[in-house]
Design a protein around this nucleic acid. Structure first.
Lengths: 347, 347
DNA sequence: CGAAATCACTAACGCGCGTTAGTGACGTCA
DNA sequence: TGACGTCACTAACGCGCGTTAGTGATTTCG
């Protein structure tokens, strides 16, 4: 049975009706072969294309609104340009995270890559990998076999934020989280507070992140000769501020009492403020509060919240640098400092 | 020149070293042809495969950790399973939006589709379409030629939230936004407020959305015989609540004075509260405030904010139903009501 | 003036898959 | 016994692309 797949020049006419234009359509329209089209459109070096031909191809492509098929391209090239941000429930979307993702998309685009997020919550949805085949994946908690499976399936860079050996994870926990904890502790210490509390996040999905933060806070306290911080959960369900009031009471009734608290995030900080109000108390006089991750709500609180902010743009740049380094086989560069105290009136 | 691309059974051995397993590897491993592997793995109907063979193939696939290549599959099938949420700067990420996206991903997965987001801010990044080739796209503002270009390039369902003719857009503005506006107005009216204000969002990116909301509020007011709401911007830049204080003063100095305000979102509502405090005033006694889009910060405000909440799960379900309908060539079903007043203490 | 190099292209492979058109072996029915 | 199905498969096409190995025509060079 004869086999002549292509190069069967059609009599006349332009593109096949209906379907999207292919490079073959462009070739036909320009009166050249598909190879030539490919050479022109990709600027393949080692090929000499005279200007008139080049223009003919370019014009034909424009006329047909030709856009190369991503599938075919990655299939033939062997790799795609997609970086998957496999967004886990442990990192719920906040305005801060949204900004990070936005910056990531922009910075990855700069590097010739396309960032894309896929959130999952109920169950890790491995099908994305099948549906997308990314070059790189940034995720929260990937089981070892999942990582090897990805590698095996063509993912060239895998970043797992809970893997001990992952250089990006090391930066996240070693520099970013430690930076938050250290600045919180030092700020409270500089205001004279030596017995500190930790307000856990109200969102149950943040349990793991909370544990990491607590560890960092303990280290920071120890480094300054302070006792370990007293962690208290503030359940955020339901209405009213009673649970937060209980938390505040627990801190104040200790001997010696907790006089300054580090909040996991803005919502935890707001909860502490609400708890204080319930007792007719206020920050910073009765209890100093410092939060983490800036947000409009923190600025508009009563009193305006002193926060440790994380620079999301710098964070994004570092992540992109890490991924591109991994893709090029270079070592991941050292991570920058990204934390900074925003002074307001709750300490 | 001979052309025999495949079916060249290799002597012995298992998969080619290194690279990811292909269906040809599975075929070799199971001692059958690639076609048989495809039949088994896809449960192709009209093909009879005896159980022992089926098992051999299944086991071989498992042993090699075979996962089909998305590119090849969509290339051959002619369409992908990816729905692109082309997230615009006009819809900045908030906790609410994050929840919506999460629900969308889950609901689309249920429908056999894979939802993926790509945020852009600086410039619309059309390259995603080249890098992804989705079946469907949900976007904010697509120029007409972009829509036709997408259609032309194989996107089978395009939803543009600013297109007059788009049934989903009609629902968003006709049901969702109108629902928010109507409930806000009616709630304030039932508390006796007849001269209303509108607190524009502090985020400049929300300018367009703000305009739409204002239109809906005007309609709602007109429907109840009220004068048009007095819109005031509350710039959120910088620290302090002075701008918000000016806004509050502007409302109160009117004759007759504005006594109830509809805030665009939670941040706008918080800003109004901050402005009131600046004057030594408070809601609801001096000015009633009702916000939109619930959030922890709204619950923890002083006083806790009365809000109009939007059910994001129901919203997600409707969007998924709309997309699947479009894909199947069915008409988009009528959209549900998704708004509801959350009673607290600012009205 | 003939060999070599360059130019301007084209044919065809292979990426990995879904799918259709077979193709022998075996069983069934008249 | 032969026509006819069904069974259990396999060969091969085509999806759209990047890329390599050519191939005639022209130019360059000794």
């Amino acid at each position: 049975m004869g086999h002549k797949t292509e190069e069967v020049r059609m009599a006349g006419g332009t593109a096949r009706s209906g379907r999207r234009a292919t490079s073959a359509d462009v070739a036909r329209e320009a009166g050249v072969s598909r190879s030539t089209v490919s050479f022109v459109l990709n600027g393949t070096k080692g090929q000499t294309i005279p200007e008139p031909t080049r223009q003919r191809v370019l014009e034909a492509a424009a006329r047909l609104r030709y856009a190369p098929s991503a599938e075919a391209r990655t299939l033939s090239r062997g790799r795609s340009d997609v970086v998957l941000l496999y967004q886990p429930p442990q990192l719920p979307m906040t305005a801060d995270m949204g900004a990070l993702v936005e910056f990531l998309a922009a910075e990855f685009a700069e590097a010739g890559l396309t960032a894309v997020t896929h959130p999952w919550s109920r169950k890790p949805d491995g099908d994305v990998l099948t549906a997308i085949t990314p070059v790189a994946v940034i995720a929260w908690d990937l089981p070892d076999d999942a990582v090897t499976a990805m590698r095996h399936n063509g993912v060239r860079a895998v970043i797992s934020l809970t893997a001990e050996s992952d250089p990006v994870a090391q930066w996240i926990w070693g520099t970013r989280e430690n930076g938050i904890a250290r600045l919180q502790v030092e700020r409270l210490l500089s205001a004279g507070h030596r017995r500190l509390g930790y307000a856990r996040p109200h969102d149950a999905r943040l349990a793991e992140a909370s544990e990491m933060r607590l560890k960092a806070l303990r280290q920071a306290c120890a480094a300054h000769g302070l006792p370990a911080p007293v962690a208290v959960s503030i359940p955020g369900d339901g209405e009213g501020a009673r649970p937060a009031a209980d938390a505040v009471a627990a801190w104040r009734e200790l001997v010696p009492a907790v006089t300054g608290v580090c909040a996991h995030d803005d919502v935890a900080a707001l909860s502490v403020l609400a708890g204080l109000r319930e007792h007719g108390l206020a920050a910073p006089a009765d209890l100093a509060v410092i939060g983490a991750g800036d947000s409009p709500a923190a600025r508009l609180a009563v009193p305006p919240l002193t926060m440790v902010a994380v620079d999301m743009l710098v964070t994004a740049r570092h992540l992109v640098a890490a991924v591109t380094s991994l893709l090029d086989g270079r070592p991941v560069p050292a991570g920058p400092e990204v934390t900074q105290v925003i002074e307001r009136h709750s300490v």
